[in-house]
């Protein structure tokens, strides 16, 4: 009986060891799936859009809440991004913590622009710094994830995951 138990335990151990590479491979493939290029839908006709993102790194615990006219569009944690569809024209986006930083952007119809938020050193706490960016910079970031829906500001604002999926289903991804 004891021998049988030992044999069963050994068999279970061997099975676990042999299946470990399979688990690792599965995890890797999931990782690869995560690392697939982020699909950004084209903006609706006559509208423009901005992709805000925040590279990972220092100050990951600090928030970078993007606002326009005092109204929150979305929080932006480290390694996150969100898409804002808006009217063409000049817009002022701000981030605020210990100090306020503002970025002016000219949104043009049927075009996608990019902006990034970085956390720089402050006297008491880190300060968010919002800057213009390029698609190349956005694509360089590894494993960016969409901001969680509950971290987004009141709708309509940042595109919700369902809205992105619907937009991608309707039209191909923006170039």
């Amino acid at each position: 009986m004891i021998r049988l138990k030992v044999a069963l335990a050994m068999a279970a151990g061997i099975a676990a060891i042999s299946s470990a590479p399979a688990f690792a491979a599965k995890a890797k493939s999931e990782e690869k799936a995560d690392a697939a290029p982020i699909a950004i839908p084209a903006p609706p006709p006559g509208k423009g859009q901005i992709v805000f993102f925040r590279p990972g790194g220092m100050g990951f615990a600090l928030g970078c809440s993007v606002n326009e006219n005092g109204e929150k569009i979305s929080s932006l944690g480290a390694g996150r991004y969100f898409i804002l569809v808006t009217e063409p024209g000049t817009h002022q986006y701000s981030v605020k913590s210990e100090a306020k930083d503002t970025l002016g952007l000219l949104v043009e119809s049927d075009e996608t622009q990019f902006a990034k938020c970085k956390i720089k050193m402050g006297i008491v706490a880190g300060r968010p710094d919002i800057q213009p960016a390029t698609e190349e910079e956005f694509r360089k970031q590894k494993s960016l994830k969409l901001v969680d829906e509950d971290d987004m500001g009141p709708a309509p604002g940042a595109l919700r995951p369902a809205e992105i999926a619907a937009a991608l289903a309707q039209a191909p991804a923006a170039e």
Binding site: M58, G59, L105, I119, K120, M121, D129, Q131, P132, T134
Partner: peptide
């Protein structure tokens, strides 16, 4: 006119400063 894409930021040294902080 439209679509003059000249929206850039200079070389950021925020990461250098952050490394110094560490």
């Amino acid at each position: 006119l439209r679509s003059l894409h000249w929206a850039q930021s200079g070389q950021s040294r925020v990461d250098t400063v952050n490394t110094l902080n560490v």
